[in-house]
């Protein structure tokens, strides 16, 4: 559905690229988590995917069109939820009424359902809402647009605990086989459960592009005080009850993927991560 092809981008002519030769394929029906350290270029990558920035080289293809050309039909398939919002001084209903006609698959029902889940009244004025409420209102609008691609930049920033839960529920309910969602976030504890696929971006490029199933089939996440396991671990950090460790999955048993540990491993040992995941899938290697 979406392919990012050898994308390179820099904020200026003679400066080091923020995004350097990034290639990705985004399939519909999945929620992608885009993780990376501060300033690594996650927001820039989302803006490039949305066609809001001009790459130095490479291109982004959405449903057969380069998003940079910003054709209305392509833009009608993309919705971006920025980390900081600037919404007009109108009611939620008015905002939806004047913006919805741009999106061919707009759904009033979805909008009403999302607002209801978030506990918002469509008559409320956007400029009188708190930052978190504005974000919830805009998220409701974004989901109701039913675009093929939904890009979210730090969507849970500024949301209270019940709203984060509501957000997860809404995203899960709104997922279809025709839609892909990319969420750029640092809040892996909040969103970890809803992600299907992990992308980890480092200054050197994408160091991990794998589904959670694939990750679980290759890596084990265990907590133990065993010195033998510690010696074999790819990454470990001390806890009160021993060590949290990431180990190569040798016995085929799947453990729950700990995104924080995975991220730390990717940041500390990017080359190892690349070699581990950018090879033939494990199942094929094993001949299963």
């Amino acid at each position: 559905m979406l392919s990012v092809n050898h994308l390179t981008f820099a904020y200026g002519r003679d400066v080091k690229p923020v995004i350097d030769d990034v290639t990705l394929d985004i399939a519909p029906g999945s929620v992608y988590g885009l993780l990376g350290r501060n300033g690594v270029g996650k927001t820039t990558l989302l803006q490039l995917i949305a066609g809001a920035l001009t790459p130095r080289s490479g291109w982004v293809d959405l449903l057969g069109y380069d998003t940079r050309s910003r054709y209305p039909r392509t833009m009608a398939e993309i919705m971006v939820i920025p980390d900081r919002l600037q919404l007009p001084a109108v009611s939620i209903a008015t905002f939806a009424r004047v913006s919805a006609p741009f999106y061919p698959r707009w759904s009033d029902d979805d909008m009403a359902r999302c607002l209801d889940t978030f506990g918002l009244d469509p008559r409320q004025r956007l400029d009188r809402l708190s930052l978190g409420q504005q974000k919830k209102a805009f998220m409701s609008f974004a989901i109701a647009c039913n675009t093929s691609l939904l890009l979210m930049d730090e969507p849970t920033d500024g949301l209270d605990i019940p709203s984060k839960e509501a957000f997860r529920r809404i995203v899960a309910e709104s997922m279809t086989d025709e839609r892909a969602i990319i969420i750029s976030t640092h809040q892996v504890r909040d969103l970890g459960q809803m992600l299907d696929h992990i992308l980890i971006l480092e200054p050197s490029g994408i160091v991990l592009d794998a589904s959670l199933t694939d990750i679980a089939s290759r890596l084990s996440f265990v907590t133990s005080d065993s010195r033998e396991l510690l010696a074999r671990s790819l990454y470990a950090r001390p806890t009160f009850s021993g060590f949290e460790m990431v180990l190569p999955n040798t016995d085929g048993s799947e453990t729950r993927v700990e995104l924080e540990m995975l991220f730390s491993l990717a940041v500390e040992r990017p080359d190892m991560m690349r070699s581990l995941f950018l090879t033939t899938p494990k199942a094929t290697q094993d001949g299963n």
Partner: peptide, 19 residues
């Protein structure tokens, strides 16, 4: 004036209409 903020600019540039 809306282009003077990143979110304003993104919403401007991703609006499904031509420049």
């Amino acid at each position: 004036a809306t282009l003077n903020t990143p979110s304003g600019a993104v919403s401007f540039l991703t609006l499904p209409a031509t420049p």
